[in-house]
């Protein structure tokens, strides 16, 4: 028996594993790895009008972006947007989930209502919000008019636009977070509550000592997902503001889209995508390092 034969025999597990992994590796390669490496490759080039790499420029795209006030503004807007939407969405969703977790008559109706925004596509709900924000015939300004308050240029005032988009985004995202959190709440063992009730614990004590710790894996999951989603927001920006006014809602993903598909600058667009990737990577790593300590797995 030769050495090669022995190695071959020993690695049988590895080879079997590779065989099982093959389908997903092929799929991932085609749809994830190839586009990813292509993006990184393109980020070092200037592209011609048909999107082919034309001139190698090294890190010039990155240098240009980091020095450009527009891109800095995009990063700032993205940061603010994440800050506006993620905490509020999760706190509201948790509040609704706690309410809907009570065993009451007809609670199924409320559960459906609270999660219903999940069933509406981003495009459809953005169009509805667009009508409500309309400066001349929108519902919000009509309401303000009835109450004799000054009119607000919801989507046209750079001070308000990001807030307006955030409000609609919170509304859109609550459904999904609510549903996941409610699922987490339903999974908590009833006996824990029973024993604590016998011990005479009050509602808020139980919430702090049982519900939240038991819910922490779900909370951790939803926070991570919401953060990543918020960083990648695109649909509502495209429909509501197109990045305006004065770039105040030009979030990074929208700026990538505009650079690539309106300006046909795939090089700088790819560079932006790479930077976004790094940001999300760092945020996610940080979250796993810091946030995970507080997570209680049963």
């Amino acid at each position: 028996m030769t050495r090669i034969g022995r190695v071959w025999r020993k690695s049988v597990d590895g080879r079997t594993a590779a065989l099982y992994l093959l389908p997903s590796i092929i799929l991932f390669s085609v749809f994830v790895f190839y586009p990813m490496f292509r993006t990184i490759y393109l980020s070092f080039f200037l592209t011609d009008q048909t999107g082919n790499a034309a001139i190698m420029v090294g890190f010039e795209n990155f240098v240009y972006l980091l020095g450009s006030s527009e891109f800095q503004n995009s990063m700032k807007a993205t940061g603010l947007f994440v800050l506006y939407t993620v905490p509020i969405t999760i706190i509201l969703a948790l509040f609704f989930a706690l309410l809907a977790n009570e065993k009451l008559k007809g609670i199924g109706f409320f559960r459906t209502m609270y999660s219903s925004t999940m069933g509406i596509s981003v495009a459809a709900s953005s169009v509805i919000w667009l009508f409500m924000f309309n400066p001349s015939i929108g519902m919000f300004n009509r309401l303000l008019g009835v109450l004799n308050l000054p009119q607000i240029q919801w989507l046209l005032d750079p001070e308000w636009a990001l807030l307006s988009v955030s409000i609609s985004t919170i509304w859109m995202n609550i459904g999904f977070s609510f549903l996941i959190l409610l699922g987490g709440l339903q999974n908590i063992d009833e006996h824990l509550y029973e024993s604590s009730r016998i011990d005479g614990a009050g509602y808020f004590y139980r919430l702090r000592r049982i519900t939240l710790p038991m819910l922490s894996p779900t909370l951790f999951f939803i926070i991570t997902i919401s953060l990543i989603n918020a960083f990648q927001t695109f649909g509502q920006i495209d429909i509501l503001t197109k990045g305006g006014p004065s770039q105040s809602t030009n979030l990074i993903v929208y700026s990538i889209y505009r650079e690539a598909f309106i300006n046909y600058q795939f090089g700088t667009a790819s560079a932006q995508a790479v930077i976004l990737f790094l940001i999300i990577l760092i945020v996610t790593i940080l979250q796993f390092k810091l946030g995970e300590r507080k997570v209680h797995y049963q």
Partner: peptide, 22 residues
């Protein structure tokens, strides 16, 4: 195992989303 696999799933999910955002 759970956390590390969750971590990688998220990274991949992110990559997929970036790739097909537009």
């Amino acid at each position: 195992l759970l956390t590390s696999s969750l971590f990688w799933v998220l990274i991949l999910a992110f990559a997929v989303l970036t790739a097909c955002t537009n």
